[in-house]
């Protein structure tokens, strides 16, 4: 019993460590790619690691209240929670995490958990830009959740299960078994929702660096910011791994996981470097338009 518990905890730590390092490297790589698009050299690949060390090495921290402390904690709890309930590699014991038969619903809940905690923390910091960005973020989140939820409902009807492991198993046995080929409408709706989730242009209305610098984390500094940056890597990867599992057949080893998550992320990056930022109402109307219709069609076609 004790040995099993220790093994499970050790596996969770290994899984989390690998994904954090990969996530931070991916962030560095994307900074590099964006810089090359701009015609610059860009920061070194390991810049996110140095930034996190530097932020944690700051000697002073300011206190704004209890929720201000708890905001980053909730955020990273949301990130780790999301990741640890998604089976990252199909059939692997180390990367199976804490997947169980209803995990898809729990994961969709955890997506919101961190952002709601962060909204409370940013609210207590008292900065006006934080309040503006929180209202923008929650509005946009509600909007892109509609096509994503419809897409997940369509998948639940298609595979008759709410278990991510079950959905991945059903897609094994060849590239044409992937959801992207068996249910393209749901995939397109969810990938458009992913653009909103990843907060790259044109949907970066929350951080909006030149407009409301820089949104919810305006007052967060030192180790708070270090936590938020670590979460950014973990949560980002959790989303990508979930999308890989749901729509692109999952992964059977770490190399395939890296290739697939990188390719899915490139969608956001390519769209991000190509388009300028939407205004808030444009972004919300966009998600409630064509992506939602695609999601509804995906559900209808599955029920036919």
């Amino acid at each position: 019993m004790l040995q099993e518990t220790v093994t499970i905890i050790a596996y969770a730590f290994i899984s989390l460590l690998v994904i954090t390092i990969y996530g931070l490297t991916l962030n560095g790589l994307v900074m590099k790619i964006v810089a090359r698009v701009h015609g610059r050299f860009g920061p070194p690949l390991w810049q996110p690691f140095i930034d996190i060390i530097k932020n944690n090495a700051k000697r002073t921290m300011i206190y704004h209240g209890t929720m201000f402390f708890l905001g980053p904690v909730f955020r990273i709890a949301g990130g780790i929670g999301t990741y640890l309930f998604i089976p990252a590699i199909h059939g692997s014991e180390v990367f199976a995490n804490f997947s169980f038969s209803g995990d898809l619903l729990l994961v969709m809940y955890f997506f919101f958990f961190g952002q709601l905690g962060m909204a409370l923390g940013a609210g207590e910091s008292g900065h006006p830009y934080s309040a503006i960005a929180v209202s923008r973020g929650l509005a946009q989140m509600t909007a892109f959740e509609v096509p994503f939820a419809l897409s997940v409902i369509s998948l639940a009807i298609q595979y008759q299960t709410l278990s991510i492991t079950g959905i991945v198993s059903a897609q094994q046995g060849g590239i044409l078994h992937w959801t992207v080929f068996t249910n393209p409408l749901a995939t397109v709706a969810a990938l458009i929702a992913l653009l909103g989730m990843n907060m790259h242009s044109p949907f970066d209305i929350v951080l909006a660096p030149q407009e409301i610098p820089i949104g919810p984390p305006t007052e967060f500094h030192s180790a708070y910011l270090g936590l938020l940056q670590t979460n950014r890597a973990i949560f980002n990867l959790a989303k990508l791994v979930l999308f890989m599992n749901l729509y692109f057949g999952g992964a059977t080893n770490i190399l395939i996981l890296i290739i697939k998550t990188f390719s899915i992320y490139m969608l956001s990056v390519i769209v991000g470097v190509s388009f300028p930022r939407f205004r808030t109402e444009q972004s919300i109307r966009f998600f409630l338009g064509i992506p939602t219709i695609l999601g509804i069609l995906a559900v209808i076609f599955q029920k036919l």
């Binding site: 900074m31 810089a35 860009g42 140095i50 660096p209």
Partner: peptide, 11 residues
């Protein structure tokens, strides 16, 4: 391009 020296603007 000062980003290559690890220097970045912060608002």
């Amino acid at each position: 391009d000062v980003f290559r020296y690890g220097i970045a603007p912060r608002p």
